[in-house]
């Protein structure tokens, strides 16, 4: 087993950029005055001549990234998820995705685990916004190891990619030595026949812990980690729908437009089964410590277990 790592995925992101930039001279990094928070500061320290702070001007930053990509660079443009995908949505749509330019957008401090900053900074719409844009790939890594793989895959893929980064330090779940990040492929972390729990991002580990608790109560839950929300792994989801008959999704995102809806779209035609979507129920978050908020919003292991039991009528 690889070592279990407790680390925020934003930190892993900064490290991955540095590692890849050693051999790939085309990688450049842009930030909008949040380098210390998005952890592009790690890259900035190692490669100051390839780091460009664009100031608090996200729309221009995305456009600059598009111009760099049009000249052969591989720009990573980072900010908080709220501002990267919200403020600069239309720049991403028209200047990056429409011309299929090789720009990677990193949205940090995504979800309610942003914590004390409160609702204005807790982005719960980024996945919905990015998956609605043609040509866009959307990745939400669950831990340190997955983030390393995701950034590498984003560099290898020619075209626009959105990567979601978290603020909170979390325990790694993909600790097996043979872990391999495959873009567009879901991962079955635990087999089961009664129900399938599909999770993304930091909720993945909570789903695994919940499944272990549920097993003690005689509920055999399958757990699938979906790191690539677009294009989503239809095969693994349809198989799960056929074999377990019920799917429940968990995400640190609004239940409108995120993982839950992506799962529904993937199975609704070929194998429609009951799907329950769990996450943030179309409301804004508020200030508080991240862990407390995750508990209140039902996104920790006990919350996941509770929802699964309710879904199964137990």
């Amino acid at each position: 087993m690889a070592e279990m790592v407790v680390k925020a995925t934003r930190e892993s992101f900064g490290e991955a950029l540095c590692e890849l930039a050693k051999t790939n001279k085309d990688i450049v990094v842009l930030d909008a005055d949040l380098a210390a928070a998005t952890k592009t500061s790690i890259f900035q320290k190692a490669f100051p001549e390839r780091f460009f702070d664009c100031g608090i001007a996200e729309g221009n930053m995305i456009g600059v990234a598009a111009g760099l990509a049009a000249c052969g660079k591989i720009p990573f443009a980072a900010s908080f998820a709220m501002f990267a995908t919200g403020r600069a949505f239309e720049q991403i749509r028209n200047s990056v995705a429409y011309p299929q330019l090789n720009v990677k957008i990193a949205g940090s401090h995504a979800g309610i685990s942003t914590g004390e900053d409160g609702a204005t900074h807790q982005c719960i719409e980024d996945i919905a916004l990015m998956r609605a844009i043609p040509n866009m790939t959307v990745i939400n890594p669950a831990d340190h190891y997955e983030m390393l793989g995701a950034v590498k895959a984003a560099v290898e893929l020619e075209g626009p990619v959105y990567i979601r980064l978290g603020r909170l330090a979390i325990e790694s779940v993909n600790n097996n030595d043979d872990y391999k990040f495959e873009l567009g492929k879901g991962i079955t972390l635990r087999d089961g026949k009664d129900v399938t729990i599909v999770a993304t991002g930091l909720v993945v580990r909570e789903a695994v812990l919940a499944a272990e608790e549920l097993a003690k109560e005689g509920i055999d839950a399958r757990v699938i980690n979906i790191h690539t929300i677009k294009p989503i792994d239809e095969e693994i989801l349809i198989k799960a729908a056929k074999e377990t008959g019920k799917i429940i999704t968990f995400e640190e995102h609004n239940v409108i437009g995120g993982l839950g809806d992506a799962v529904l779209s993937a199975i609704s035609e070929k194998c429609p089964v009951p799907v329950k979507k769990c996450g943030v129920y179309d409301r804004f978050g508020y200030s508080g410590p991240a862990k407390e908020l995750l508990e209140i919003f039902g996104l920790t292991a006990p919350g996941v277990a509770r929802e699964v039991k309710a879904f199964l009528g137990k």
Binding site: F52, G59, N60, M61, I62, G63, V64, A65, A66, G67, L68, A69, A70, C71, G72, K73, P75, Q91, S95
Partner: peptide, 11 residues
Amino acid sequence: GISAACGMALA
């Protein structure tokens, strides 16, 4: 467009 032009000039 002007932002993209800035990116090209920066490249």
